[in-house]
């Protein structure tokens, strides 16, 4: 990932156009094609990932579903053979009764309105409701499924994405302090569970203190996490 220029809606990004002449490029969120021009539609720093992916990394709080995303959802209602789940997007998502491990038509999962689930987005399209699953392609639940107990809070989408990066130092730094369980959704929702309420609140404060740290400062902030947790 390389840092790059700041773009505003309507700005033409000629660096991508040049690259597109020689090979295929992938335009992510915040960029669109207008005839043979590439134009930004959001304000934010332009990011580039080798070899050919571009997107605008703006600070956003509303989640837009994308296929393969891991999200935290709250069950809102039962409707026929699906549950309606709130994942913070424009539309309410659905999850089938059969999208859980070892579920059959006879053996339905026991979910009630208000339950929290950790799920993967199976399909996401602007024109239809997003659909979730709680199993992988082999029918195993893995880390997905219903989350019991614990504490749930919301944060910005950037923080969720940052914690889910492969080499994020924050979760490791917290793990040195105390044992805990965490589920992070890219929809800006986090669920944590520790042994005592005091520990849980400490964790929440520590995670929220990362909110305004950029990719660069995160390691510095991680050094102070112990102090944040004590207060």
């Amino acid at each position: 990932m390389t840092s790059s220029n700041f773009v505003m809606p309507g700005d033409r990004v000629s660096s991508i156009e040049d690259l597109a002449k020689t090979k295929r490029v992938i335009l992510g969120p915040g960029l669109r094609r207008l005839d043979d021009k590439v134009v930004a539609s959001k304000a934010g720093p332009l990011r580039h990932k080798e070899p050919n992916t571009f997107w605008v990394d703006n600070y956003q709080r509303r989640y837009v579903p994308a296929r393969g995303d891991l999200v935290l959802g709250i069950v809102r209602a039962k409707a026929g053979d699906v549950y309606r789940v709130d994942i913070g997007s424009a539309d309410v998502a659905t999850i089938s009764y059969l999208a859980f491990e070892a579920a059959t038509k006879k053996n339905r999962p026991d979910l009630n309105p208000g339950d929290m689930i950790y799920a993967r987005v199976l399909n996401a399209n602007a024109d239809i409701e997003p659909e979730l699953v709680c199993v992988n392609s082999n029918g195993k639940r893995g880390k997905l499924g219903v989350l019991q107990d614990g504490f749930f809070f919301k944060c910005s989408l950037n923080l969720g994405r940052m914690l889910l990066r492969e080499n994020c130092p924050a979760l490791g730094a917290l793990n040195e302090e105390l044992p805990y369980e965490i589920a992070v959704g890219v929809n800006g929702r986090i669920w944590v569970k520790a042994h005592t309420p005091r520990d849980t609140l400490g964790l929440v404060n520590a995670i929220l203190s990362l909110e305004n740290a950029g990719y660069a400062e995160i390691e510095k902030v991680c050094g102070n996490l112990t102090e944040v947790m004590q207060t």
């Binding site: 915040g30 669109r32 539609s41 959001k42 600070y59 956003q60 709080r61 509303r62």
Partner: peptide, 9 residues
């Protein structure tokens, strides 16, 4: 702009 809504300009 800050809410991240897509705009032409």
């Amino acid at each position: 702009l800050i809410g991240g809504l897509p705009m032409k300009y």
